[in-house]
Structure formats: structure tokens, C-alpha cells
Amino acid sequence: MSRRFVPVDRRILEQNIKARYHAGDIGTEDALHLFDELLQCAGSSSIRAINYLVTTVGRDSPALGVSLFNRVASANVAPNSMTYTILVDCCCRAGRLDLGFAAMGHIIKMGFAADAIVTFSHLLKAICAEKKTSYAMDIVLRIMPMFNCVPDNFSYNILFKGLCNERRSQEALELIHMMVQHGGSCQPNVVSYNTVVDGMLKEGEVDKAYTLFSEMLRQGISPDVVTCTSIISGMCKVHAMDKAEEVLQQMLDRRILPDAATYNCLIHGYYLLGHCEKVDRIFKEMSRNGVQPNIVTYNIQIIFARAEGAQKLGKYLIL
């Protein structure tokens, strides 16, 4: 079988584009000039280099990225699945969700749907951004499996974020439970739990958030500093300082180093309760763990120092 001949100039140009793209050495203007140059001599092997250029342009100008795709389609260079993924992303970020769905239709028609998990993700993010998370759920739970495109953690995490942004954290919780009970290969991860815990706390569902945190530990999902700090913050807001301290101890036991934000929650909580001796203990613990107070820490101190000073001055004036 004879090997297809690729002109030396074109091959060098394609290799140059690839090297510069991976080195982060192509700006939008350069990409446009290179695109014009490549398209004049492009062949079937040029689609990878074209994808690099369209991606670069689309980052700064999604609408211009869509325009470049149209030029590719009319230049007899067959787009591949990655080209369509880039197109869907550009359409969604340009606010043209309708064109994104049209491009997705081409992907399905060409038989790329099973490998189009990233493409679906672009659509899901855009749909959730428009507060249409119920539709995004239908895509993940029904449409994607229909085309043998198995949703992954990233797909579900987009749903969790969308539901919580719409103050539907209870539905997000039910979705987590559904994933766990299904027992499939796609299970909630630390990002999933962090998102839903944060959503519940924002809706004032502190007890449910703490329960979900406990479930997370039972499932063997190791929390991170974001998870623990969110829970500690929620506990401090309802003055459940014993539970907040319990989570702090769990962090230390798991060798998850608390940061300034973690300690700020505890400092603020104890100040609100007037437990200044416990505030001193937290400051000493911060120092032992090598955590430096930040501007928020000092602002909390200043606010409560002023409040305490005003209270003392008020008593003095009354006397």
C-alpha cells in the first residue's frame, strides 16, 4: 500500500503550529495568520493543526472561532470529533446555544456521540448557566446513555453545581444517593460532595450538610480543606462549636492542614459567643501549625475589639 505524499512545506507548517501551540507561543493574531496560510495548502492531515488554531482563536473570540470552523468546512478538510467539540464550546461561550445543539446533532449523525463526553459537558455547562438544570439532567440521565456516551464525574458535578445554584440542593442530594445506590463505576467524588455540602449550607440546611459530610466519610471519600472549612463555617454560624471542633480534629487526624480560612471561622464563632479565652487558644494553635493570620483574621479582631471598647465606654458613660 503506497504511503500518501504530504508536501514538505505543509508538513513543516503543521509541525511548527503543533510545537508553538504546546509551548503556548501562539496568540490570536498569529493563529489567524497561520490559519490563512495553512488553509491554502491544507490536506486531510491538517485537521489537527487546524484544531490547535481554532482553539487558540476561540479562547479570545468564540464567535470568530465559529467563523473559522465554517471556513474549514468549505475548504474540503473533513472536521473530526475534536473540531466539533471546539465548535460546540465556541457556540456555547458565544451565547449561541442553538448552534451548539446543531453542532451536537452533526456529532451524533457522524457517529461520534459515544466519545463525545467533553462535547456534552460544554453543552451541560451552558444549559445550567441559563438556569435550565432540569434539561441538563435529562441529557445526562437519558440522552447520553441513549447514544452509549457514559456520563462521568465531571458531567454529574456540572449538574450538582447547577442544582445548587438554583437552590435545589435537596435534589442534588437525591442524585448523589442515586449514584451511590446504583453502584456503578461513576461514583460521587470529593468535588461532588463539596458542591452539595456548600449548596446546603447556603440554603441554611446545616444539619443535612453535616449528615452528608458524615456519609462522605463512610463512603471512604477523603475530604479536603474546602469540605472541612465549609462544614466548620456552617457549624460556627449556628453556634455548634463542639461539632466545629470535632471536624477540626478530624482534619488533623487525617493530616489535612487547616488554613487561615478554617481558623477564621472558629475565631469568628467564638468571638460571637464571647469566648475570648478560646479565641486565644485558636490563635496559639494556628501558630503551632504554621498558619499565618491573614487580613480577614485581623479584621475580625478589629471589629470585635471596637465592639468591646464601645461596650466598655457605654458602661462608663452610664456610670
Rank of each mutant, 00 (worst) to 15 (best):
A172T: 04
A310T: 07
I26Q: 07
N70I: 02
R59D: 15
I86Q: 09
T55G: 04
A209K: 07
F283E: 06
P293S: 00
T227E: 09
Q249D: 12
M216E: 03
E285R: 13
M137L: 07
I267W: 01
I158D: 01
C265E: 09
R218I: 01
Y21T: 08
L173F: 10
L273R: 06
P293C: 00
M1E: 11
L64T: 10
G65L: 03
R96D: 12
L313K: 12
M216T: 01
L53T: 08
G100T: 14
D98Y: 05
I295D: 08
V196L: 14
Y210T: 13
D253I: 04
A114N: 10
Q219E: 06
G204S: 02
V206R: 11
Q250H: 08
E174Q: 02
S81Q: 10
Y270P: 01
P293I: 00
K278R: 08
P7I: 11
R167D: 10
A307N: 13
K278E: 02
A305R: 07
F120Y: 14
A310W: 06
D242N: 08
L248F: 12
L32F: 03
T133P: 03
L38V: 15
A310Q: 11
I26D: 03
N189F: 08
A102I: 13
S287R: 13
R306Y: 10
G204P: 05
M286Y: 04
Q249H: 04
D30F: 01
Q187W: 05
S185P: 08
N189R: 03
A94G: 10
H22D: 06
H22C: 05
Q181L: 11
M146I: 01
C228S: 09
M110W: 15
L38G: 08
R255N: 15
F304V: 02
H182G: 10
N76V: 14
R10Y: 05
M235Q: 14
D259W: 08
E14A: 10
S185L: 14
V8T: 10
R288I: 11
D280L: 11
R10C: 09
A136Q: 01
R59P: 00
G234S: 07
S185A: 15
G290V: 06
F147V: 15
F112C: 04
G24M: 04
V8M: 15
L159F: 00
